[in-house]
Design a binder for these strands. Structure first.
Lengths: 221, 221
DNA sequence: GTCTATACATGGATAGAC
DNA sequence: GTCTATCCATGTATAGAC
């Protein structure tokens, strides 16, 4: 018998969820289903999967418990629908297209600034905590994230770094991974693990050093 | 009222826990307290804080439930003792001292290899998942990690990068952060979020590119 | 200290009225 | 579809015998 059971996400049977609008005041206009998704997101983000009870979600969404079970098979299913809708929102919000015309130093700096700015948000950070925290018990969730969010973004940057008029990298893909990885690590350390209280490192300083490293590497090849 | 309650870790009242030995066969020799800590670690790592029940822990440890409550005030307290003992084990196992005599390329490569090798371990990865997943609800846990594990390690590397006979960095601290951050990000992506199925990136290739970036940067200054 | 048995709250999920 | 009221398993924590 397996040491612990992996929870399945039931990804096949989800209706394609609408993107969840997060404005509070529009609450009245939302369908019950969307109110549940919206309330569920807030509760799952705050308490984790096991810490989030259906009672809390029902209260937050302003509906009764059985209403949740008419729209979603069980707690698992609700969770998977939520995750999908959040991924969908992230993917459709592309924020870098306008940068690809810039010259290398400006591109790297602006990309890094946008990236960090975007991640420095309660919802994003909480979602990342949830994603990582449950990635062992919900491996499908992590796979989906890699596939739908990380992979396309990485492919785009790799392709950009492969432009031989602007860059001279022997291994553009590896450089892309290190670049984005460093930015992720900054958020992980400063915001998620709250190291900023003990290990201060201003954003601009980190970005400047990282950008310079990339530029030196391009020049050296 | 706060949107959700943060759970306190009761760090003051913990006895300094002995390092938990993880060998199964030594189970008979352990005190009840240590058996609880050992079993608790396994269950918490597998199920997360809320998913881990005291029943499961008691079963895993081979003791009855009330025995747990004679040694620990409550589930919270048991968790905090566990976390402390794991941090203690990580800090006391220093693994890089022998490397600091190597020349720059060899040092960077060997350090990176050791770092990744050490983190590629079920217990380490599960603990990191737990740490990140609960960092919003147990901020003390994340602070303790930053303070006792990250900060000393980072100080050591920064001091090494400040050696002007070997390196020429304008900002050794930032370089150290980027270096270690990139390695952490690799593990996060490949092992924790399981991106390796979709985004293959061999360890040696990642390390080689990262090391080269650092060396180019040192040469350029 | 350690156990069996249990108290009491909360968990996920549903029956049946409207 | 939506609610009130409820079922039953499991959760944390403890009483009391040894």
């Amino acid at each position: 018998m397996a040491f612990f059971m992996k929870k399945s996400l039931d990804l096949k049977n989800n209706k394609t969820s609408k993107v969840i609008e997060l404005e509070k005041d529009s609450n009245e206009r939302l369908s019950k289903r969307d109110k549940i998704l919206q309330g569920g997101l807030k509760i799952f983000l705050a308490h984790g999967f096991d810490g989030a009870s259906v009672d809390k979600i029902a209260a937050e969404a302003g509906v009764s418990k059985p209403t949740i079970y008419t729209h979603f098979k069980d707690k698992n299913h609700l969770f998977s629908c939520l995750v999908e809708s959040v991924f969908l929102r992230w993917v459709t919000t592309s924020y870098t297209d306008s940068l690809y015309e810039l010259d290398p130093p400006a591109f790297l700096t602006k990309f890094a600034q946008n990236f960090l700015k975007r991640m420095d948000d309660w919802e994003y950070i909480s979602f990342f905590r949830l994603l990582v925290g449950e990635s062992g018990r919900f491996p499908d969730l992590a796979h989906l994230y890699s596939q739908r969010v990380i992979m396309p973004a990485m492919a785009k940057i790799t392709s950009y770094f492969s432009n031989e008029e602007k860059w001279h990298f022997q291994d553009p893909e590896a450089i892309a991974r290190i670049f984005v990885g460093s930015l992720n690590a900054y958020i992980m350390s400063q915001e998620i693990l709250c190291a900023k209280h003990y290990l201060e490192m201003p954003r601009d300083r980190y970005i400047k050093n990282l950008v310079d490293m990339i530029l030196y590497t391009s020049k050296a090849n």
